[in-house]
Structure formats: C-alpha cells, structure tokens
C-alpha cells in the first residue's frame, strides 16, 4: 500500500497569503475556511471571502495542488441555510473536497452535488473503522481525519479495516480531548468548537498584570498565572494550571505541540494517506516553516525508505514555531495517555 500511495501533505491557510505560501513551500493540499461560523477556526481576521477563495483555488490549481474546504461545525435549524449555501459555493468554485462533520450536511452534499468529494472532519469524532464505515456507507465519504486519540497500532488497525483513506494530524496545536466531544469552551464561554467554530475565543480573554504575576482569564475564570520569568501563554482552557488535591499543575495538558516527524516511516507503513498540519489561525511564516520541513521529510522518505532519519535542523525549525516551544507524540505514543 505504501508504495502505491504517496503521503499527501495537507497544510493550513487562514488567509490568501498563507495559502500561496503553503503552495509555494510544497503543500499537496491546502485546507481553508470561509469567514463565518461554518468552520472550526472561526477567528476574527481569519479566513476567506468568496473572492479570495476563488483566487486561492486558481492559484493552487494552476500549480497542480488541491484546496479542501473545512465546513466542520454543526449547524442548527435556525442557521442551516448558511451551511448549505457554503457547500453550494464550494462546489461551484471547484474545491477539491469539503471536510464535513455533520451527517445531515453530508447527506445534503451527497444528494445535491454527487461529484463533490467528501472528507470526514476530525470534528466527526470517528475513532474506529466501524464509525468511519458508517459515514462511507451512508454518504460515500472518501477520506476520514482521525481524532488525536489513537496509538500508532490502533491507527494501523483502523486503516486495515476500512476502504476509506485515512488522514492523521502530524504537527501543530494539540487537542487533548476527542474533537467533536468537547464542550469545555461552551461551559466556560457559551461558544464551542461544535456550534460556533471557536475554542476559548479571544473576545472572552483577559490578560492582567497583578502583584501575583500575569493572570490570564477566560470569561473571568482564572486559567493561569505566570511569574515574571515565565512566558505567558494564551488561555486555552485545557492548558492552564489548576489545583487538584494539594497540587497546582497542568492538570489536563501542558502548552505543547504535537510533532510526529519521527513517526513518519511508521505512519507510511501503516498506510496513512495524508498528514495534516494544524494551524489555520497561525501566520504565513508558520505555514512556510512547517510546510517546508514536512515537504522535505516526506520527499526524503520516498528516496531513503527504511534508512529515513529525522534531520536535526528539521526539529529545530519545528520547535521554533511550536506552542510552548516543546513537543509531544501525543496519543500515538501510548504512555502519553
């Protein structure tokens, strides 16, 4: 399997410049979203208008690359037409696939645009081949993005038992929770990845220098407090320091990034078809740095095969752009769990 299907590199773009940068740096696919709540990175100042989307698709297609549209939030009765209109525009503009999470939307896309390729979003929470095969049998999805919860052997087991292509996260911000099954942000702020496309949204964030240190709050809730010699991070609520029992620590997860570069040969051997880089909210500079490294690594794997070795300068480049300047293998490495 690995010999016949090269791994696709799927890179994020939160803007037209980022998309062009990703294409120029060697992304096979760029995934994007529109400027509204239809996608899970609905942040101020981010994402595409109709015009920039058309231009982005033109730019990518002229260079033989693909554009994937993330439409991976869950619409409700009152706003449903905004999501279906977005699918219609995407099909009309010629995106190469739409990344969906909601079964109702998949049915709509499948019936209205039978030629439109469907990918199951990580927000669909499909962690087993049975779940993935449900979406395949019902809506004809051709690819599924796995939540960041499975160990490497578990990923291989999923791939061995489904005809659906599997895409996994390779690098970037780490969701500790099963994507699509987390209401922590909704509990704290009223806005969630599922329904609003936002986690720990900026408008609820407050930074405050106090005698005890720099405090970061989310809707008034103290997420962390930093000493003068500590770098104060964004208050993503699962990455703060809290008290449990007598200890104050990163009770859920440290501010760290996922980096699976060293697992690349194993992922290829397991039959992974695409590697996704997280970070549509990040800058074009981040996109360029990460895309270049991963492009080089995937190309090196093709030529070196079993002799593949991670280059120190790749790791240094990736660590430079990591959240918290540290990285983890996440759930791929079982002891992380």
């Amino acid at each position: 399997m690995t010999a016949t299907h090269p791994i696709e590199l799927v890179c994020p773009a939160g803007s037209l410049p980022a998309l062009k940068t990703a294409v120029d740096a060697g992304a096979d696919c760029v995934y994007v979203g529109f400027k509204n709540a239809t996608n899970a990175r609905n942040f101020t100042g981010l994402n595409f208008t109709d015009a920039s989307m058309r231009e982005g698709i033109r730019y990518a297609h002229e260079r033989g690359r693909k554009v994937l549209l993330a439409l991976n939030t869950y619409p409700q009765a009152g706003n449903w037409p905004e999501w279906t209109r977005t699918i219609d525009s995407a099909a009309d503009m010629g995106v190469d696939a739409v990344i969906l999470a909601d079964p109702g939307l998949m049915r709509y896309a499948n019936r209205t645009h039978p030629d439109l390729r469907l990918h199951l979003s990580v927000q669909g929470s499909a962690t087993s081949y049975e779940a993935i095969n449900f979406y395949r049998d019902q809506f004809g999805i051709q690819r599924a993005v796995l939540p960041r919860v499975l160990s490497l052997p578990q990923v291989a087991h999923v791939i061995a038992n489904t005809s659906v292509e599997i895409e996994v996260f390779g690098f970037g911000g780490l969701c500790v929770m099963v994507e699509g099954r987390c209401s922590l942000s909704a509990y704290a702020t009223g806005e969630s990845p599922n329904c609003n496309g936002a986690c720990s949204p900026g408008k609820h964030v407050r930074w405050e220098q106090t005698p005890k240190g720099m405090e970061t709050r989310l809707n008034g809730i103290l997420i962390d407090r930093f000493a003068d010699d500590e770098r104060a991070g964004y208050p993503t609520l699962c990455k703060g320091r809290f008290g449990v029992g007598d200890e104050t620590y990163y009770a859920i997860e440290e501010p760290t990034s996922l980096n699976t570069l060293e697992l690349l040969p194993d992922l290829a051997r397991a039959g992974v078809r695409a590697i996704k880089i997280e970070g549509r909210q990040r800058s074009p500079a981040y996109v360029q740095q990460v895309t270049r490294v991963w492009r080089a690594a995937i190309d090196r794997l093709k030529t070196d095969g079993e002799r593949f070795a991670v280059q120190p300068d790749w790791m240094a480049a990736l660590n430079n752009v990591s959240e918290g300047q540290s990285h983890t293998l996440g759930a791929y490495y079982r002891p992380w769990k």
């Binding site: 449990v244 009770a251 002891p335």
Partner: peptide, 21 residues
C-alpha cells in the same frame, strides 16, 4: 455534573503520575 469532554488520556491517572494502562 455535566459530562463535558472525553480524552484518550486519563486525568485521574495523570494526577497520580501513572499511565492509563
């Protein structure tokens, strides 16, 4: 108490410096 999130990681085990397995 509302079930709000699920993870591959066990946070109770983490508190006691144990792995889930």
């Amino acid at each position: 108490r509302l079930p709000l999130a699920y993870s591959a990681r066990c946070f109770t085990a983490r508190h006691f410096n144990l792995q889930k397995d």
